[in-house]
Computed example of a mutant assay.
Amino acid sequence: MDLRHADLADLDSVRAFAATVTHADVLINNAGVMDPPTRRSAQGHEIQFAVNHLAHFALTGLLLDRLTDRVVTVTSVLHKKGRIDFADLGAGLYNGSKLANALFALELHRRLTAAASPVRSLMAHPGYAATGLQAAMRPSLNRLILTKLGNRLLAVPAAQGARPTLHAATSPTATSGRLIGPGGPGELRGAPTELRPAPAALDPQTATRLWTVSEEITGVRFPLPQPDGDDNPEIAGFPT
């Protein structure tokens, strides 16, 4: 096993890490923070938007010319409650950062398709998994409910929560531009299956604007063309 360090709260660290990678078949953008004590990244951005979205955007762009198979961006079922406020990109906090993940993954799919690239872009979400994510939240009633009650009564073990991501990363039939998550009630648990993203995640205008802003903030430019037009036939047909 080859372990390397990258601090996703610091874009300089992301760049330094990317410079050490010479080849990769699969990139899984999985790191995340959820409602931590208030802080900002090394570049001054709200920490959840910085770690959950900006670092993954930058890392993907920096490694794209060395990727051969696919990019899997891990979002959350809570992306359905997210919003993107371009006047204050940190205002959406965790849910907004997870919506940003979905918007990015689908826009990356559009641009890879336009470039006739063999690399695929997929999304995955774990449902409700008992991990250290909730325990790292700032002290609050929400943390108490999630860690003391939700994790015990509703959540699946972390290993089971990883199944949708592993499916998206390894299945030879996984289709670019798709969301894989648990197929049970509320998408909280169950076998990996193809799911429909929130309508907000399918908005190409918002995705394009977020992409442009993310390039400006990170200084990372993807060597990919922007798709023509606003229709997206290549990502039509999600499950209803």
Rank of each mutant, 00 (worst) to 15 (best):
L106A: 13
L99E: 00
G96N: 02
P225Q: 13
R111T: 10
T131G: 08
G127H: 00
E187H: 13
L224C: 07
A168F: 01
G161Q: 10
A124G: 11
A18M: 05
T113R: 14
N30D: 00
I217A: 09
I47D: 12
S121T: 08
T131R: 09
G183H: 03
I47Y: 06
P233M: 02
A42C: 00
A91C: 00
P199F: 07
P239W: 01
R83P: 01
G183I: 07
G92W: 09
E107W: 05
A114M: 06
R70E: 08
A105W: 09
A158I: 04
L8K: 10
N52G: 12
R152L: 13
A236Q: 10
A200K: 14
G237A: 03
T173N: 07
L166C: 07
A130D: 15
G229I: 05
I180D: 01
N142I: 03
V26S: 03
T175I: 14
D88F: 11
R163S: 05
V26M: 04
T113L: 13
V71N: 03
A169E: 03
D12C: 01
H125D: 08
N52W: 09
A87G: 15
A19P: 00
R83A: 15
P192R: 07
R178H: 11
R209N: 03
E46Q: 15
N142G: 05
T131I: 10
H79E: 12
G184F: 06
R196G: 04
A116D: 15
L62S: 09
N30L: 06
G150C: 04
F49T: 06
T218F: 10
I84K: 00
V213Y: 00
R111V: 11
L67E: 10
A236K: 11
D12A: 15
T113P: 09
P118R: 00
A191H: 11
N142C: 00
R110Y: 04
T170W: 05
L122F: 14
T208I: 09
L210Y: 07
A130S: 14
T68P: 01
V14K: 09
L188S: 06
I28R: 01
A162C: 10
G237P: 05
I145E: 01
L154F: 13
S13K: 04
P239S: 00
L67T: 08
E46R: 08
M34Y: 14
N30T: 00
G150R: 00
M34L: 14
L8I: 10
F17S: 05
G183D: 14
N29E: 01
E194I: 12
F17V: 02
T175E: 15
A18N: 02
L103T: 03
H79A: 06
L146N: 12
N101I: 13
Y94E: 11
M137R: 02
A18F: 02
R39Q: 15
P204H: 04
G219W: 11
K98S: 13
D7T: 02
